[in-house]
Design a binder for these strands. Structure first.
Lengths: 146, 146
DNA sequence: GCTAACCGTAACTGTGTATGTTACGGTTAG
DNA sequence: CTAACCGTAACATACACAGTTACGGTTAGC
Protein backbone atom coordinates (compact mmCIF):
# COMPACT_ATOMS: atom_id res chain seq x y z
CA UNK A 1 0.00 0.00 0.00
CA UNK A 2 1.41 3.14 0.74
CA UNK A 3 4.35 4.85 2.18
CA UNK A 4 1.74 7.42 2.85
CA UNK A 5 1.80 9.24 6.15
CA UNK A 6 -1.27 11.35 5.54
CA UNK A 7 -3.61 9.15 7.49
CA UNK A 8 -1.63 9.28 10.75
CA UNK A 9 -1.01 13.00 10.37
CA UNK A 10 -4.66 13.81 9.74
CA UNK A 11 -5.60 11.72 12.75
CA UNK A 12 -3.00 13.46 14.88
CA UNK A 13 -4.33 16.88 13.91
CA UNK A 14 -7.92 15.92 14.66
CA UNK A 15 -7.01 14.49 18.06
CA UNK A 16 -5.09 17.64 18.91
CA UNK A 17 -8.09 19.76 18.05
CA UNK A 18 -10.43 17.48 19.96
CA UNK A 19 -8.58 17.78 23.27
CA UNK A 20 -8.93 21.56 23.36
CA UNK A 21 -12.50 22.04 22.17
CA UNK A 22 -13.61 25.46 20.96
CA UNK A 23 -10.02 26.66 21.10
CA UNK A 24 -8.15 27.86 18.02
CA UNK A 25 -4.84 26.14 17.33
CA UNK A 26 -2.50 27.78 14.84
CA UNK A 27 -0.88 25.79 12.06
CA UNK A 28 2.46 26.65 13.63
CA UNK A 29 1.53 24.92 16.89
CA UNK A 30 0.12 21.92 15.12
CA UNK A 31 3.25 21.76 12.99
CA UNK A 32 5.37 21.49 16.12
CA UNK A 33 3.20 18.73 17.49
CA UNK A 34 3.27 16.74 14.28
CA UNK A 35 6.86 17.74 13.59
CA UNK A 36 6.50 19.17 10.13
CA UNK A 37 6.05 22.46 8.30
CA UNK A 38 3.10 24.83 8.91
CA UNK A 39 2.32 24.89 5.22
CA UNK A 40 1.96 21.11 5.24
CA UNK A 41 -0.48 21.40 8.11
CA UNK A 42 -2.47 24.04 6.27
CA UNK A 43 -2.69 21.75 3.27
CA UNK A 44 -4.09 19.03 5.50
CA UNK A 45 -6.44 21.47 7.21
CA UNK A 46 -7.86 22.39 3.82
CA UNK A 47 -9.00 18.78 3.49
CA UNK A 48 -10.58 18.80 6.93
CA UNK A 49 -12.35 22.08 6.23
CA UNK A 50 -13.66 20.59 3.00
CA UNK A 51 -15.23 17.78 5.01
CA UNK A 52 -16.91 20.30 7.29
CA UNK A 53 -15.13 18.97 10.36
CA UNK A 54 -12.96 22.02 10.97
CA UNK A 55 -13.30 25.77 10.72
CA UNK A 56 -10.36 28.12 10.31
CA UNK A 57 -10.02 31.71 11.34
CA UNK A 58 -7.57 34.13 9.75
CA UNK A 59 -5.81 36.92 11.55
CA UNK A 60 -4.40 37.32 15.04
CA UNK A 61 -5.41 34.56 17.45
CA UNK A 62 -6.72 32.66 14.48
CA UNK A 63 -6.19 29.01 13.71
CA UNK A 64 -8.24 25.88 13.36
CA UNK A 65 -11.07 24.57 15.49
CA UNK A 66 -13.14 21.38 15.49
CA UNK A 67 -16.79 22.08 14.74
CA UNK A 68 -18.26 18.58 14.96
CA UNK A 69 -18.48 16.03 17.75
CA UNK A 70 -15.29 13.96 17.60
CA UNK A 71 -17.46 10.91 18.22
CA UNK A 72 -18.91 11.34 14.75
CA UNK A 73 -15.53 11.09 13.01
CA UNK A 74 -14.39 7.52 12.65
CA UNK A 75 -10.96 6.48 11.49
CA UNK A 76 -12.69 5.09 8.44
CA UNK A 77 -13.75 8.60 7.48
CA UNK A 78 -10.24 9.89 8.01
CA UNK A 79 -8.79 7.00 6.07
CA UNK A 80 -11.00 7.67 3.08
CA UNK A 81 -10.01 11.29 3.15
CA UNK A 82 -6.34 10.40 3.26
CA UNK A 83 -6.48 7.75 0.54
CA UNK A 84 -8.90 9.46 -1.78
CA UNK A 85 -8.26 7.24 -4.76
CA UNK A 86 -8.56 3.52 -4.76
CA UNK A 87 -6.47 1.72 -2.23
CA UNK A 88 -5.20 -0.79 -4.74
CA UNK A 89 -4.24 -0.08 -8.29
CA UNK A 90 -5.01 -2.66 -10.94
CA UNK A 91 -2.76 -3.21 -13.87
CA UNK A 92 -4.27 -3.02 -17.32
CA UNK A 93 -3.59 -6.39 -18.91
CA UNK A 94 -3.38 -7.07 -22.61
CA UNK A 95 -6.83 -7.21 -24.15
CA UNK A 96 -5.80 -10.18 -26.27
CA UNK A 97 -4.90 -12.31 -23.29
CA UNK A 98 -7.83 -14.72 -22.91
CA UNK A 99 -7.49 -15.14 -19.18
CA UNK A 100 -7.10 -11.45 -18.37
CA UNK A 101 -10.82 -11.06 -17.98
CA UNK A 102 -11.34 -13.58 -15.21
CA UNK A 103 -8.17 -12.56 -13.39
CA UNK A 104 -9.25 -8.96 -13.34
CA UNK A 105 -12.76 -9.86 -12.28
CA UNK A 106 -11.57 -11.92 -9.34
CA UNK A 107 -8.99 -9.41 -8.23
CA UNK A 108 -11.48 -6.58 -8.36
CA UNK A 109 -14.07 -8.47 -6.36
CA UNK A 110 -11.68 -9.84 -3.74
CA UNK A 111 -9.88 -6.55 -3.24
CA UNK A 112 -13.22 -4.81 -2.90
CA UNK A 113 -14.25 -7.25 -0.18
CA UNK A 114 -10.90 -6.92 1.52
CA UNK A 115 -11.05 -3.16 1.55
CA UNK A 116 -14.52 -3.34 2.99
CA UNK A 117 -13.31 -5.56 5.81
CA UNK A 118 -10.45 -3.18 6.48
CA UNK A 119 -12.73 -0.19 6.67
CA UNK A 120 -15.18 -2.01 8.91
CA UNK A 121 -12.44 -2.32 11.51
CA UNK A 122 -11.43 1.32 11.15
CA UNK A 123 -15.06 2.39 11.54
CA UNK A 124 -15.08 1.05 15.10
CA UNK A 125 -12.73 3.71 16.40
CA UNK A 126 -13.45 7.42 16.55
CA UNK A 127 -11.35 10.50 17.15
CA UNK A 128 -13.07 10.80 20.52
CA UNK A 129 -11.78 7.38 21.57
CA UNK A 130 -8.21 8.43 20.96
CA UNK A 131 -8.92 11.84 22.44
CA UNK A 132 -9.70 10.33 25.84
CA UNK A 133 -6.23 8.82 26.13
CA UNK A 134 -4.60 11.87 24.63
CA UNK A 135 -6.28 14.17 27.15
CA UNK A 136 -5.02 12.00 29.98
CA UNK A 137 -1.49 12.18 28.58
CA UNK A 138 -1.77 15.92 28.26
CA UNK A 139 -2.95 16.31 31.85
CA UNK A 140 -0.12 14.19 33.19
CA UNK A 141 2.37 16.15 31.11
CA UNK A 142 1.12 19.46 32.43
CA UNK A 143 1.26 18.22 36.03
CA UNK A 144 4.89 17.24 35.56
CA UNK A 145 5.68 20.68 34.24
CA UNK A 146 4.68 22.34 37.51
CA UNK B 1 -2.63 2.24 -0.43
CA UNK B 2 -0.27 1.90 -3.09
CA UNK B 3 0.04 2.65 -6.68
CA UNK B 4 1.54 -0.77 -6.62
CA UNK B 5 0.60 -3.19 -9.35
CA UNK B 6 2.74 -6.04 -8.17
CA UNK B 7 -0.04 -7.94 -6.48
CA UNK B 8 -2.25 -8.18 -9.57
CA UNK B 9 0.71 -8.99 -11.77
CA UNK B 10 1.97 -11.76 -9.49
CA UNK B 11 -1.51 -13.19 -9.36
CA UNK B 12 -1.82 -13.05 -13.12
CA UNK B 13 1.44 -14.92 -13.57
CA UNK B 14 0.47 -17.62 -11.10
CA UNK B 15 -2.92 -18.14 -12.74
CA UNK B 16 -1.28 -18.39 -16.15
CA UNK B 17 1.06 -21.06 -14.86
CA UNK B 18 -1.76 -22.92 -13.12
CA UNK B 19 -3.87 -23.36 -16.25
CA UNK B 20 -1.08 -25.18 -18.11
CA UNK B 21 0.30 -27.45 -15.39
CA UNK B 22 3.70 -29.05 -15.89
CA UNK B 23 4.26 -26.89 -18.94
CA UNK B 24 7.07 -24.37 -19.17
CA UNK B 25 6.05 -20.82 -20.05
CA UNK B 26 8.77 -18.42 -21.14
CA UNK B 27 9.04 -14.97 -19.64
CA UNK B 28 8.42 -13.60 -23.12
CA UNK B 29 5.03 -15.28 -23.32
CA UNK B 30 4.08 -14.22 -19.82
CA UNK B 31 5.16 -10.70 -20.66
CA UNK B 32 2.75 -10.62 -23.59
CA UNK B 33 -0.07 -11.84 -21.41
CA UNK B 34 0.60 -9.33 -18.66
CA UNK B 35 1.58 -6.67 -21.20
CA UNK B 36 4.98 -5.74 -19.87
CA UNK B 37 8.68 -6.44 -20.38
CA UNK B 38 10.18 -9.94 -20.05
CA UNK B 39 12.76 -8.63 -17.59
CA UNK B 40 9.97 -7.39 -15.34
CA UNK B 41 8.42 -10.84 -15.43
CA UNK B 42 11.73 -12.44 -14.57
CA UNK B 43 12.06 -10.13 -11.59
CA UNK B 44 8.64 -11.27 -10.41
CA UNK B 45 9.48 -14.89 -11.10
CA UNK B 46 12.50 -14.57 -8.86
CA UNK B 47 10.13 -13.80 -5.99
CA UNK B 48 7.95 -16.78 -6.81
CA UNK B 49 10.96 -19.07 -7.05
CA UNK B 50 12.09 -17.78 -3.67
CA UNK B 51 8.77 -18.88 -2.19
CA UNK B 52 9.23 -22.33 -3.68
CA UNK B 53 6.08 -22.06 -5.77
CA UNK B 54 7.79 -21.98 -9.13
CA UNK B 55 10.75 -23.61 -10.82
CA UNK B 56 12.57 -22.15 -13.78
CA UNK B 57 14.51 -23.85 -16.49
CA UNK B 58 17.23 -22.19 -18.53
CA UNK B 59 17.97 -22.90 -22.17
CA UNK B 60 15.83 -23.79 -25.15
CA UNK B 61 12.24 -24.72 -24.28
CA UNK B 62 12.89 -23.39 -20.81
CA UNK B 63 10.68 -21.12 -18.78
CA UNK B 64 8.72 -21.21 -15.56
CA UNK B 65 6.52 -23.92 -14.13
CA UNK B 66 4.31 -24.21 -11.09
CA UNK B 67 5.56 -26.84 -8.67
CA UNK B 68 2.93 -26.66 -5.95
CA UNK B 69 -0.81 -27.23 -5.93
CA UNK B 70 -2.46 -23.91 -6.81
CA UNK B 71 -4.99 -24.65 -4.08
CA UNK B 72 -2.26 -24.11 -1.51
CA UNK B 73 -1.51 -20.56 -2.66
CA UNK B 74 -3.99 -18.07 -1.29
CA UNK B 75 -4.20 -14.46 -2.37
CA UNK B 76 -3.07 -13.62 1.13
CA UNK B 77 0.21 -15.35 0.46
CA UNK B 78 0.61 -13.49 -2.83
CA UNK B 79 -0.33 -10.23 -1.18
CA UNK B 80 2.31 -10.62 1.49
CA UNK B 81 4.87 -11.37 -1.14
CA UNK B 82 3.91 -8.29 -3.11
CA UNK B 83 3.76 -5.90 -0.17
CA UNK B 84 6.72 -7.21 1.75
CA UNK B 85 7.05 -4.26 4.08
CA UNK B 86 4.28 -2.91 6.25
CA UNK B 87 1.16 -1.90 4.47
CA UNK B 88 0.91 1.40 6.27
CA UNK B 89 3.73 3.71 7.18
CA UNK B 90 3.61 5.65 10.42
CA UNK B 91 5.00 9.09 10.76
CA UNK B 92 7.46 9.74 13.56
CA UNK B 93 5.93 12.45 15.71
CA UNK B 94 7.83 14.89 17.87
CA UNK B 95 8.93 13.26 21.08
CA UNK B 96 8.03 16.37 23.00
CA UNK B 97 4.44 16.30 21.95
CA UNK B 98 2.54 14.89 24.95
CA UNK B 99 -0.24 13.32 22.95
CA UNK B 100 1.96 11.70 20.32
CA UNK B 101 2.23 8.55 22.38
CA UNK B 102 -1.44 7.71 22.57
CA UNK B 103 -2.07 8.67 18.96
CA UNK B 104 0.68 6.38 17.76
CA UNK B 105 -0.47 3.57 20.01
CA UNK B 106 -4.02 3.69 18.74
CA UNK B 107 -3.04 4.01 15.12
CA UNK B 108 -0.67 1.08 15.39
CA UNK B 109 -3.23 -1.16 17.02
CA UNK B 110 -6.12 -0.23 14.77
CA UNK B 111 -4.11 -0.51 11.57
CA UNK B 112 -2.82 -3.87 12.71
CA UNK B 113 -6.36 -5.11 13.25
CA UNK B 114 -7.47 -3.65 9.94
CA UNK B 115 -4.68 -5.34 8.05
CA UNK B 116 -5.54 -8.60 9.71
CA UNK B 117 -9.15 -8.30 8.59
CA UNK B 118 -8.02 -7.51 5.09
CA UNK B 119 -5.78 -10.52 4.92
CA UNK B 120 -8.47 -12.78 6.33
CA UNK B 121 -10.62 -11.99 3.31
CA UNK B 122 -7.75 -12.53 0.90
CA UNK B 123 -7.00 -15.89 2.52
CA UNK B 124 -10.35 -17.23 1.35
CA UNK B 125 -9.40 -17.23 -2.32
CA UNK B 126 -6.72 -19.36 -3.92
CA UNK B 127 -4.98 -19.33 -7.27
CA UNK B 128 -6.89 -22.50 -8.10
CA UNK B 129 -10.23 -20.69 -7.67
CA UNK B 130 -9.27 -18.13 -10.26
CA UNK B 131 -7.68 -20.79 -12.41
CA UNK B 132 -11.02 -22.55 -12.91
CA UNK B 133 -12.57 -19.49 -14.51
CA UNK B 134 -9.41 -18.70 -16.42
CA UNK B 135 -9.26 -22.20 -17.88
CA UNK B 136 -12.85 -21.86 -19.07
CA UNK B 137 -12.01 -18.55 -20.73
CA UNK B 138 -9.01 -20.11 -22.40
CA UNK B 139 -11.03 -23.02 -23.74
CA UNK B 140 -13.69 -20.74 -25.16
CA UNK B 141 -11.03 -18.56 -26.73
CA UNK B 142 -9.38 -21.53 -28.41
CA UNK B 143 -12.72 -22.79 -29.73
CA UNK B 144 -13.39 -19.42 -31.32
CA UNK B 145 -10.04 -19.52 -33.02
CA UNK B 146 -10.96 -22.63 -35.00
C1' DG C 1 -4.47 53.07 10.02
C1' DC C 2 -0.34 50.25 11.12
C1' DT C 3 1.53 46.20 12.48
C1' DA C 4 1.98 41.55 13.61
C1' DA C 5 -0.15 37.11 13.74
C1' DC C 6 -2.76 34.34 11.20
C1' DC C 7 -4.65 31.43 6.84
C1' DG C 8 -4.78 29.91 1.66
C1' DT C 9 -2.50 28.65 -2.18
C1' DA C 10 0.79 28.31 -5.71
C1' DA C 11 5.35 27.07 -7.21
C1' DC C 12 9.43 24.69 -6.85
C1' DT C 13 12.62 21.21 -5.02
C1' DG C 14 14.01 16.83 -3.11
C1' DT C 15 13.29 12.08 -2.40
C1' DG C 16 11.83 7.49 -2.42
C1' DT C 17 9.72 3.77 -4.95
C1' DA C 18 8.30 1.16 -8.83
C1' DT C 19 8.24 0.20 -13.55
C1' DG C 20 10.43 0.20 -18.20
C1' DT C 21 14.45 -0.82 -20.77
C1' DT C 22 18.85 -2.44 -22.17
C1' DA C 23 22.65 -5.28 -21.68
C1' DC C 24 25.49 -9.08 -20.76
C1' DG C 25 26.90 -13.45 -18.89
C1' DG C 26 25.51 -18.17 -18.18
C1' DT C 27 22.74 -22.51 -19.52
C1' DT C 28 20.52 -25.86 -22.39
C1' DA C 29 18.54 -28.45 -26.59
C1' DG C 30 19.12 -29.73 -31.17
C1' DC D 1 27.73 -23.93 -32.56
C1' DT D 2 23.72 -21.53 -32.38
C1' DA D 3 19.46 -19.92 -30.86
C1' DA D 4 16.28 -19.80 -27.12
C1' DC D 5 16.11 -19.40 -22.59
C1' DC D 6 17.03 -17.37 -17.44
C1' DG D 7 19.35 -14.14 -13.82
C1' DT D 8 20.84 -9.90 -12.60
C1' DA D 9 22.78 -5.47 -12.78
C1' DA D 10 22.61 -0.87 -14.37
C1' DC D 11 20.57 2.48 -15.87
C1' DA D 12 16.38 5.81 -17.36
C1' DT D 13 11.68 7.30 -16.44
C1' DA D 14 7.55 8.39 -14.01
C1' DC D 15 4.96 9.71 -10.18
C1' DA D 16 3.32 10.88 -5.67
C1' DC D 17 4.23 13.18 -1.69
C1' DA D 18 6.75 15.84 1.94
C1' DG D 19 9.43 19.90 2.50
C1' DT D 20 10.10 24.66 1.63
C1' DT D 21 9.49 29.36 0.22
C1' DA D 22 6.81 33.04 -1.07
C1' DC D 23 3.13 36.16 -1.48
C1' DG D 24 -1.50 37.91 -1.10
C1' DG D 25 -5.42 38.37 1.93
C1' DT D 26 -7.64 38.75 6.76
C1' DT D 27 -8.08 39.99 11.53
C1' DA D 28 -7.11 41.88 16.38
C1' DG D 29 -4.95 45.17 19.11
C1' DC D 30 -2.52 49.35 19.79
Amino acid sequence: MAQCTRFPVLTHILVCLSVVPQEYLSSAMLAKSVDTNPAVIRRMLALLVGEGWVQTQAGVHGGARLVVDPQTISLRDVFRLAEHDTLFALHAPQKKCPIAGSVKEWITRVLGDAEEALEAVLAQTTIADIGVDAAADLEQWMAQRK
